[in-house]
Amino acid sequence: MARWQPGTRERLQAVALRLFAEQGFEQTTVAEIAAAAEVTERTFFRHFADKREVLFAGQDDFLALFIDPITAAPADTAPFELIARSLDAAGDYFPHDRRPFSRVRQTIIDAEPSLGERELGKLATLKVRLGEVLRDRGVPEPAATLAAETGVTVFHLSFQQWIAPGEDRSLATIARERLDALTSLVATGRTVGGTSE
């Protein structure tokens, strides 16, 4: 069997995704994934701790994608703009050619409750980290937590739309649309509530 070929990790991911989609996540074994990718099980475990990590690997990169634009922003950047910068970076991380992979991955996660819980846990971790980074920049409470929660909610809703059948807009475009809708909602709510000046 071939070992340590260039692109082995990516090939394992592609093969695993195909098998998960065809057979179901629980029904697919590491041995089957390795055999289909023409590597040994030992090689599989050099790249992934277990078969779940095929779907969830890269958590640190995922967090950094949102956090790095915040830490790099000028000190006087408003919290809402910090979140917008994070979402723009997310758009760069999910280009058009990644959409088919993301669509299949989400289908697999949606079909398996334990995977869905893991996905929600990933988003919960992101909320916590965003809140910490915003507070480290001096954003007070409750603004820091509200901004973090808002950022993750907008990302989640935008991502779901991005992988929807027939959708071809960029993730960044969809996220900006939802941020604009949120801004409009808040502004309208203040006017309707009679609290605008």
Rank of each mutant, 00 (worst) to 15 (best):
M1A: 14
M1Y: 07
A2F: 10
R9H: 08
Q13H: 05
Q13T: 09
E22Y: 02
F25G: 03
F25E: 07
E26G: 14
Q27G: 12
T28H: 09
T28Q: 06
A31L: 11
A31S: 15
E32M: 13
A34S: 03
A35L: 09
A35T: 11
A35G: 07
A36R: 13
V39Y: 13
V39D: 11
E41T: 15
F44N: 00
F44V: 01
H47Y: 11
A57H: 14
G58H: 02
Q59Y: 01
F62W: 15
L63W: 07
L65P: 00
P69Y: 04
T71F: 00
A72I: 06
A72E: 12
F80V: 12
L82D: 11
I83T: 09
I83A: 15
I83S: 04
A84F: 05
L87G: 06
D92F: 08
Y93V: 05
R98G: 03
P100D: 06
R103D: 02
I108L: 02
P113D: 01
S114R: 10
L115F: 01
E117V: 11
L120N: 12
K122C: 09
L123T: 08
L126E: 05
R129D: 07
V133E: 15
D136V: 01
G138I: 08
A144W: 08
T145L: 10
L146Y: 09
A148F: 03
T150S: 14
G151D: 07
R169F: 01
A172M: 05
I174Y: 02
A175G: 03
E177A: 15
E177N: 10
E177L: 04
D180E: 15
A181Y: 03
A181V: 06
A181P: 00
T183H: 15
S184V: 07
S184Y: 06
L185P: 04
R190T: 00
V192S: 10
G193Y: 02
T195L: 14
E197W: 14
